[in-house]
């Protein structure tokens, strides 16, 4: 007799089944990133009662609503401030920000650089489809030069952000980039950041056949996946200044930064303890018992 060892899809326990099928287009890569994230949750053995997912608005922002975890679908660009509050109020939580390139680097760009500067312990996963997808394909700060968008019918001429370089320069402790072709490497990075303290940033290039590729005659989702396979080069430790993206050029992937900097709460505790001595009581302990605290004002 044969025996089935994996009778359910590993991602299934993490999905809100009643919300399936999801709204993402055929060949959209966002769902693929969710598969890697589910594997990372399993492999890292994190306590699922202590994981919170925070998304902004956009196609990627839907992730929070589809995951059966404590999840928050916040306002556009404000996933990081929301996540910062969560993490400060309950430091025992693993707080994951899962959002789009526009949400995190356009309207929310200021929040991102300051969270990285403070090195607050957030795990940020940015699905970069090079466009504002949900609103109809407008130019994002990530759209590479010469790409056609709704708002750049003759092609984009302004320079794009290099996200890993920006995250590193602002102070991130961990910076990696993969594409949706790199499902295993992406899962490993997602797993790794659960064990890393400080601001962690993972960029995942992902197909948007509907609103980025169609206008640029780049085919469907599968064509984008094949492009990633053919044009990616793994360079762990590559200087982030060298990993900027172009419309049709090489995609450098890998883990670029893994360093230790003091985390925001540690800095806060050190400063207050230095200044106030015993009068300062860190509320981290209270957060260990979230149901019996509260009235002491922490």
């Amino acid at each position: 007799m044969s025996e089935v060892l994996t009778p359910v899809n590993p991602v299934e326990p993490f999905l809100r089944a009643e919300r399936m099928p999801h709204i993402w287009c055929p060949g959209c890569g966002i769902g693929t990133t969710v598969n890697s994230f589910a594997r990372a949750l399993i492999e890292s053995k994190v306590d699922l009662d202590r994981v919170a997912i925070v998304s902004g608005i956009g196609c990627t922002g839907r992730v929070a609503g589809y995951l059966k975890l404590d999840s928050f679908h916040t306002t556009h660009g404000r996933a990081i401030p929301f996540a910062t509050g969560l993490k400060l109020a309950n430091p025992a939580l693993q707080v994951v920000v899962y959002s789009g390139d526009g949400d995190l680097f356009a309207i929310g760009g200021n929040h991102l650089i300051h969270a990285a500067r403070r090195n607050i312990d957030l795990k940020v996963i940015c699905v970069n489809n090079l466009i504002y997808a949900m609103t109809g394909g407008q130019t994002a700060p990530t759209t590479p030069g010469a790409a056609i968008t709704t708002t750049a019918p003759y092609g984009v001429y302004e320079p794009a952000f290099n996200l890993p370089a920006l995250a590193e320069a602002a102070g991130a402790s961990y910076v990696a980039r993969w594409t949706t072709f790199h499902v295993r490497q992406m899962a490993r990075s997602m797993q790794e950041v659960f064990a890393k303290k400080g601001f962690c940033f993972i960029e995942v290039l992902s197909p948007c056949p509907t609103l980025y590729q169609r206008r640029n005659k780049m085919g469907d989702g599968l064509d984008a996946m094949k492009f990633y396979k053919e044009h990616s080069r793994t360079r762990n430790g590559a200087p982030t200044g060298e990993v900027g993206l172009t419309r049709d050029g090489e995609i450098v992937v890998g883990k670029f930064v893994d360093r230790d900097r003091p985390e925001f709460r540690d800095l806060m505790r050190d400063r207050f303890t230095h200044q106030l001595g015993d009068r300062y009581v860190d509320d981290a302990e209270m957060a260990e018992h979230p149901h019996c605290g509260g009235e002491d004002g922490a």
């Binding site: 899809n9 299934e12 099928p21 993402w24 769902g31 693929t32 890697s36 594997r39 949706t180 499902v183």
Partner: peptide, 9 residues
């Protein structure tokens, strides 16, 4: 791992 629609495993 690749299926974006959680339709195969």
């Amino acid at each position: 791992m690749y299926c974006p629609d959680f339709a195969i495993y």
